[in-house]
Amino acid sequence: MLVNKKGMEMVQVGILIALAVGIGLIFKTQITTFINNTFSTLMNSGF
């Protein structure tokens, strides 16, 4: 029996992208706060 591996790879990539987007939406405020704090620290340190 032949199995379509290309199709399974696309399904796996789709699932990973969906998970990444979901995690990004869940932790959006924490990620934004972290990035803003990091950039403000870098700007205040003289760079």
Rank of each mutant, 00 (worst) to 15 (best):
L16T: 07
F47R: 07
V13M: 13
L25V: 09
S45R: 06
N37V: 08
V21A: 04
V11T: 14
T32M: 05
M8S: 01
F34Y: 13
I17K: 10
T38A: 15
G22E: 01
A20Y: 02
M43R: 14
I23S: 12
M1H: 08
Q30W: 07
M8N: 06
A18R: 03
K6Y: 11
I31N: 00
G24D: 04
V3F: 11
I15D: 05
N36R: 13
G7W: 12
G14T: 02
G7R: 14
N36I: 13
L25T: 05
E9V: 15
I17T: 13
I17E: 01
N37S: 14
K5C: 03
I23T: 10
V13F: 11
F47K: 08
G7S: 11
L19Y: 05
N4K: 08
M43T: 10
T32A: 13
L25G: 14
I23F: 15
T29W: 09
I15T: 11
N36W: 05
V21E: 03
F27W: 10
S40V: 08
G46P: 02
F47S: 06
Q12C: 06
L2S: 06
M1Q: 08
L16K: 10
N37G: 15
T38G: 11
S40P: 00
V13T: 07
M10V: 07
L19W: 07
T32E: 08
I23R: 04
I15V: 15
I17W: 00
L16V: 12
K5R: 11
A18H: 00
I17R: 04
Q30C: 00
K6D: 04
S45K: 03
K5V: 14
